[in-house]
Design a protein around this nucleic acid. Structure first.
Lengths: 103, 103
DNA sequence: AAAACATATCGATAAACTTATATATGTCGA
DNA sequence: TCGACATATATAAGTTTATCGATATGTTTT
């Protein structure tokens, strides 16, 4: 038994933790499922597709962005979002790796 | 843009959703990190390693079990838990797959 | 059968999260 | 510059989740 992590996560897991928390909400999952391959969507498009208020969607987008799941870029008065595929792949991969090696 | 999932998750994602929610809590992540490769731990061992009360740990173990991340087995008066590696691998794999194909 | 033990559940409180309205910030066009 | 627009943030209510102490359930031991 590895009791070393019982009180604090290893540093490498800190970021992962945020990713899973971000993914662990159904509304955020539904937002992610909106994206077509390689597509960028602006906040307005996402708001229009969601049964949630503009500010609520903005809040969820922030969580996804801060977790590194989405990236964003301002273009004029709009902000475009897209899935950070490499980042997300890497996160999943690192857990899969951990599972494989240490479990 | 795939607006079809804006209001309800596809059925295949329902279970995944639970897995990510379960993994999206730092205390639960720390519990998972306790396990050595192939190891089974009983609830008492886990409680002893966590800075949480017995009832709180029991609650988290239930969430992890219901998400399919942990499996459990009663042995006399003890209950042993272990990581459901195939289940977790499959969950991660299916998201990785989705990412790869649909993103 | 009773006592000791391991785990689960209940009930209550506290903390965290989600949500919406209202407002602020920043950008474009007239 | 002023007004319309797109997004973000502040605030506050409502809801969910985490937490603990106490108790219940089930198991072994004496």
């Amino acid at each position: 038994m590895k009791s070393s992590y019982a009180r604090a996560l290893p540093k490498a897991w800190k970021g992962l933790s945020k990713v899973f928390t971000a993914l662990g909400d159904e509304r955020r999952q539904r937002i992610l499922l909106l994206f077509e391959p390689g597509e960028k969507l602006n906040a307005g498009q996402i708001v229009a597709a969601c049964p949630l208020s503009q500010s609520t969607v903005s809040h969820h987008l922030k969580i996804l962005r801060e977790a590194g799941v989405l990236r964003s870029e301002k273009a004029g008065k709009e902000v475009f979002f897209w899935i950070d595929k490499p980042r997300l792949s890497e996160a999943l991969e690192s857990v899969a790796q951990y599972l494989h090696e240490k479990t």
